[in-house]
Computed example of a mutant assay.
Amino acid sequence: MPTVRINDENVTFNEGATVVDAVAQTTGRELTAEGKPADGGRLGVAVALAEEVVPRSRWAGVELSEGDQLEIVTAVQGG
Score class of each variant (00 low, 15 high):
29 R>I: 05
44 G>Y: 09
33 A>S: 10
58 R>S: 05
41 G>Q: 11
50 A>G: 11
56 R>C: 06
45 V>S: 03
36 K>E: 13
50 A>M: 11
22 A>W: 02
34 E>I: 07
51 E>A: 09
15 E>C: 06
49 L>A: 00
57 S>A: 04
30 E>L: 07
64 L>V: 05
27 T>Q: 05
45 V>I: 12
35 G>S: 00
28 G>Y: 07
38 A>K: 15
21 D>E: 00
27 T>M: 09
20 V>R: 03
15 E>N: 15
31 L>Y: 04
53 V>W: 12
24 A>V: 04
12 T>Q: 10
13 F>S: 00
19 V>Y: 02
55 P>W: 02
48 A>D: 11
9 E>H: 10
47 V>R: 01
15 E>Y: 09
15 E>A: 14
39 D>I: 10
69 Q>C: 14
30 E>C: 06
58 R>I: 03
12 T>N: 09
10 N>D: 15
60 A>D: 04
39 D>S: 08
41 G>H: 11
58 R>G: 00
47 V>L: 04
23 V>K: 01
25 Q>L: 13
48 A>K: 15
63 E>D: 13
58 R>K: 14
30 E>A: 06
14 N>R: 14
15 E>T: 11
24 A>K: 05
30 E>Q: 12
34 E>Y: 09
39 D>Y: 14
22 A>T: 00
30 E>D: 13
52 E>Y: 05
9 E>S: 14
67 G>C: 07
16 G>I: 06
23 V>E: 04
47 V>P: 10
57 S>M: 02
34 E>S: 13
56 R>D: 04
47 V>M: 02
63 E>S: 10
64 L>D: 00
30 E>W: 09
41 G>T: 13
22 A>E: 01
49 L>Q: 02
67 G>H: 11
58 R>C: 01
13 F>V: 03
14 N>I: 10
16 G>F: 05
40 G>Q: 08
49 L>R: 00
13 F>W: 03
50 A>Y: 12
42 R>Q: 15
46 A>D: 15
39 D>M: 13
53 V>P: 15
66 E>H: 08
26 T>K: 08
41 G>L: 12
31 L>N: 01
66 E>N: 07
42 R>F: 12
66 E>F: 05
41 G>S: 14
31 L>R: 01
62 V>N: 03
64 L>R: 03
44 G>V: 07
36 K>I: 00
24 A>I: 03
11 V>N: 02
44 G>T: 07
15 E>H: 12
57 S>W: 08
61 G>M: 07
27 T>A: 01
42 R>L: 15
45 V>K: 05
62 V>Q: 03
10 N>H: 11
61 G>L: 02
21 D>V: 02
45 V>W: 03
28 G>D: 10
52 E>N: 08
45 V>F: 06
59 W>D: 01
39 D>V: 14
30 E>P: 12
23 V>A: 03
57 S>F: 05
32 T>C: 03
45 V>Q: 05
49 L>Y: 00
54 V>H: 00
46 A>T: 15
65 S>D: 08
53 V>N: 15
